[in-house]
Amino acid sequence: MGKDSKPKDSAGKGKGKQPAGGGDDGGSKGKGKGGKGDGLGTCTYVKARHILCEKQGKINEAYKKLQDGWLSNGDKVPPAEFAKLAAEYSECPSGKKGGDLGWFPRGKMAGPFQEVAFNTPVGVTSAPFKSTHGYHIILSEGRKN
Rank of each mutant, 00 (worst) to 15 (best):
Q114V: 06
K13T: 12
H136Y: 15
K17I: 15
E91T: 04
E61W: 13
K36L: 07
S94I: 09
K47H: 12
K29P: 01
G69H: 13
D100L: 12
K36C: 09
K36T: 07
G22M: 10
P128N: 11
S131G: 14
M109S: 08
A87D: 00
A62G: 04
Y63W: 09
K17G: 09
F118M: 04
G34E: 03
A62M: 13
G102S: 01
T44M: 13
G111I: 11
K97I: 04
G98T: 01
T44E: 14
T125F: 03
K108M: 03
P78N: 10
F129T: 06
K47A: 08
I51R: 06
G27H: 13
G111Y: 10
D100K: 09
G98S: 00
G98E: 00
K58R: 11
P121H: 01
G111R: 09
S28P: 12
G22K: 11
N60Q: 15
L40S: 07
G16A: 14
G57W: 08
A110H: 10
G134H: 02
Q56R: 15
G32L: 00
V122K: 04
I59C: 01
M109A: 15
E88G: 04
K65P: 03
N60H: 15
A62T: 11
T120R: 03
G23I: 02
C53P: 02
D75T: 08
S28I: 12
D38E: 02
P79W: 12
G41A: 05
P93G: 07
Q67A: 12
D75K: 14
K55G: 08
D24N: 13
G21F: 01
Q114C: 07
C43Q: 08
I138Q: 10
G34T: 02
A48V: 15
E91K: 04
S131T: 15
P93H: 05
K13E: 14
I137F: 11
C43W: 10
E115S: 11
Q56I: 14
G32V: 00
W70M: 11
S94N: 08
P78V: 08
C53F: 06
V122I: 15
V77N: 04
Y63T: 10
K65T: 09
K17Y: 06
D38G: 01
S131M: 14
F113C: 07
D100P: 07
F118S: 00
I59V: 04
P78A: 08
T132C: 07
G95D: 01
G37T: 00
E54A: 13
K84M: 06
P78Q: 07
Y45L: 14
Q67L: 14
I51T: 09
H50F: 15
M109G: 04
K29S: 08
T132W: 05
P19E: 10
A87M: 03
C92T: 12
A117T: 07
G23M: 02
K76Y: 13
G30L: 06
